[in-house]
């Protein structure tokens, strides 16, 4: 009888070990390349941003919506303009819900299992104009034209808020 129970316990141990090995293989690999790419250019030190980026964003959002303070330092729009390219190299759009998890924010959030809800309302990538010759915003006031160098269309200028230029075109 003791022998049988020993064998039983050994079997249980073996099964447990196999299960552990299975778990080990199942841990997802984090894709931190997008998050690390521009860490040095960030508005706050990397360690600070890792811990406190949500606090900065929460404070800034209330200041912006309620008081109309629109500084760029802790603005979500500026995070996106700098850290997210509107499209991948193959031309497909980058969204935070994509399976690839190569969106700057979701690359880390999916790994640690923290839900992202900013982008249910906010744009999760820089604005791409209806005119395909337009690329994306570089910051709040500068824009990047594609290599084709086609003049932007009037509607795009209106969208960009370059109203005076647009009015000049119409008059």
């Amino acid at each position: 009888m003791p022998l049988l129970s020993n064998i039983k316990s050994l079997l249980v141990l073996a099964l447990f070990a196999i299960a552990l090995v299975g778990c080990d293989a199942g841990v997802p690999e984090p894709n931190l390349a997008p998050a690390k790419a521009k860490a040095a250019q960030c508005v706050e030190p990397t360690a600070d941003m890792r811990k406190n980026h949500m606090k900065y964003l929460l404070v800034h959002r209330d200041k912006t919506v309620i008081e109309g303070i629109r500084t760029t330092q802790h603005s979500l729009n500026e995070c996106i303009n700098c850290h997210v390219a509107p499209t991948r190299e193959d031309g497909s759009a980058v969204h935070y819900t994509d399976e690839k998890k190569d969106h700057f924010c979701s690359s880390c959030h999916s790994y640690v299992g923290v839900k992202l809800d900013c982008f249910q309302c906010h744009a999760d990538r820089p604005q791409v104009m209806e005119n395909i010759n337009y690329q994306h915003k570089l910051s709040s006031n500068t824009y990047h034209l594609s290599a084709k160098n086609a003049p932007p269309e009037l509607s795009d200028l209106l969208l960009l808020g370059q109203s005076q230029q647009a009015q000049g075109v119409t008059q």
Binding site: G68, R70, N77, I80, N81, A93, H95, Q120, C121, H122, A123, D124, R125, P126, Q127, V128, K137, L159
Partner: peptide
């Protein structure tokens, strides 16, 4: 649920919206 909103004008499912005199 929406995607690719205007960066200066967030819009999302489950919220009410209206003219804001273009605050931005």
């Amino acid at each position: 649920s929406l995607t690719d909103q205007r960066p200066h004008s967030p819009r999302g499912m489950g919220t009410v919206e209206s003219c804001n005199l273009c605050v931005h």
